[in-house]
Nucleic acid binder design. Structure first.
Lengths: 242, 242
DNA sequence: ACCTGAACACCGTTCAAGT
DNA sequence: ACCTGAACACCGTTCAAGT
C-alpha cells in the first residue's frame, strides 16, 4: 500500500549534491547511502540522457548500483519521482531569472527562463501540464502574479491575467518540447519546417487559405521569438485593461 | 518494422457511427468486418469510459470481440490510433462551432468549442500537446488564422497571433482536462478548491503575497470563464497592434 | 485478405529475505 | 533502518498458424 514517507517533501528541492557528512558506514560497497536527493538527481540525469521513456526503476537502480526495490524506500512511486525532478528544475530555473526594470520585462524574463528550462529538459514539459497545482507550477504563478499586480491590474483581472500567462507559458513550452523531442537534431528542424511549409502551400486554396499564406513564415520562424511575441500580446491586453 | 498500411490515413476522420449497410444490429456476433473506423470508434468509447490508461489492445480487442493482433492489421500502432481518435473528436467539435458576427466572437466560439471537447474527452488534451502538427491541430490553426486575418492584423503579426491563440487554447484545455481527471466528481472540485485556497492563505506572507491575496478568487473561479478571459487579453493585444 | 492468440521483451510495484 | 532481487500482474507488439 506504500503510503509514502516522501509525500510531505518540502518544495525546497534544489539539485543538491551536498551531502550531510557522515561517512564510513560499515558497508564497503557504496559509502554514501541512498537518499531522496541522490535518487532525484540520478533521475534527472537519466531523463536528460535517455528521454522520458529512459526513466525506469531498473535503469535507475543500475545507475545507483542498487536494487529496483530500494528506490521505493525513499520514493513513493514513479509519479512522485517525476514531480520531484520537475520541481527541482523549475526552482533552479526561476532562481536564475535576472531582475528587471519593469513588470513587463520581468514577466518576459520569467517566461523565457521557463521556456529555456523546458527546452533543455523536455520531459519537464509533459510533467508540468499533467500535474498542475504542484510546487513547480505554484512558484511560477506567484512570480508572475506579483508582476501583474505591479502592472496595476485591477483585482478581478489580476487572477485572470496571471492564470492566462501561466497557462500560456506552460502550454507553449510543453508543445515546443514535444516538437523538439520528435525532431532530435537541429538540422532536421530546418528540413522539417521547409517540408512542412511546402505541404501547407500545396493545401487546397479554398479550405486552407490562411496556412497557405503564412507558409513562408512558418519555414523561418523562431520558436522562442514567437513565444515571447505571444506574451507580448497578453501583456498588451492586460495593460489596455488597466 | 511494421510499416503501416494506415500511415497515409486521410484526415477525413469524422466520428462515423453511420454504417453504410445494415440498420438492425443484432446483439450477437458481429457480422461486419473490422475497419479503421470501427476500431477508432471503439477506441474513443473505451477512452471515454475508462480513461487514458483504459485503452489497451487487449481491452480494445475484447470490445471488438477479436484478437489483439487483428487490430494491427488496420492500425500501425497505439500512437496512430490515439492520433486518429483525436482527429475525429476535434473535427467534430469544429464542425459544431456556430457562425459569428465578428472575428473576435468567432475566435471565442472556436476556443470554447475546443475547450468543451477536451473537457468531455480529457484524453484528447494530452494527445494534442504531445503530437503537434497533426490534422487536428492544423484544423484549429486554420480556423483561427482566418479570423485573425479578418481582424486586420498585419502580415508579421498574423502568424504570431494565430500561433499564440492556438497554443493558449490547447495549453489551457490540456491543463484543465488534467485537473478534471485528477478530481473526478464535481463535488470534489469545490472541496478541493476550498482546501487549496485555505492552503494558499496559510502561505508565508513574504514569499507568497500574491497567492495569499487571490486565494478567495481561486475558490470561486470558473475555469471556462477564466479561459475565455485569457483569450480576451490576447485579442485585445492583437487589436491594439492593428 | 484478414483474423487468432500465444509468445516475447519489456514495465511498475511488491515483498520475503537479508544486513 | 535500509537494501536486495525475484516474483507478480500487467503492457505493446510480433508472428506462425489458421480461415
Amino acid at each position: 500500500m506504500a503510503d509514502s514517507k516522501t509525500s510531505a517533501m518540502p518544495a525546497s528541492a534544489m539539485p543538491a549534491s551536498a551531502k550531510p557528512t557522515r561517512t564510513k558506514r560499515r558497508a564497503e560497497r557504496r559509502d554514501d547511502a541512498l537518499s531522496n536527493e541522490r535518487i532525484v538527481d540520478a533521475a534527472i540525469a537519466l531523463l536528460d540522457d535517455e528521454g522520458e521513456d529512459g526513466l525506469t526503476f531498473r535503469a535507475l537502480a543500475a545507475r545507483l548500483s542498487t536494487g529496483s526495490g530500494a528506490i521505493y524506500w525513499h520514493v513513493a512511486n514513479k509519479g512522485q519521482l517525476l514531480a520531484a525532478a520537475t520541481d527541482a528544475i523549475v526552482a533552479s530555473a526561476l532562481g536564475k531569472v535576472p531582475v528587471s526594470a519593469t513588470p513587463q520585462e520581468a514577466i518576459l524574463e520569467i517566461a523565457a527562463g521557463v521556456f529555456e528550462a523546458i527546452d533543455e529538459h523536455p520531459w519537464v514539459g509533459a510533467q508540468l501540464s499533467h500535474a498542475p497545482w504542484r510546487a513547480a507550477t505554484l512558484q511560477i504563478f506567484e512570480r508572475i502574479g506579483q508582476q501583474v499586480q505591479a502592472m496595476g491590474a485591477r483585482g478581478g483581472a489580476q487572477f485572470t491575467a496571471a492564470s492566462a500567462l501561466l497557462s500560456y507559458i506552460i502550454g507553449v513550452s510543453v508543445q515546443n518540447a514535444a516538437q523538439a523531442r520528435a525532431l532530435e537534431a537541429p538540422v532536421n528542424r530546418a528540413r522539417f519546417l521547409a517540408k512542412e511549409a511546402a505541404r501547407w502551400q500545396a493545401f487546397d486554396a479554398r479550405e486552407f487559405p490562411f496556412m497557405r499564406k503564412v507558409a513562408t513564415r512558418l519555414a523561418k520562424h523562431d520558436d522562442r521569438a514567437e513565444f515571447l511575441g505571444g506574451i507580448g500580446f497578453i501583456l498588451a491586453g492586460v495593460a489596455a485593461a488597466v
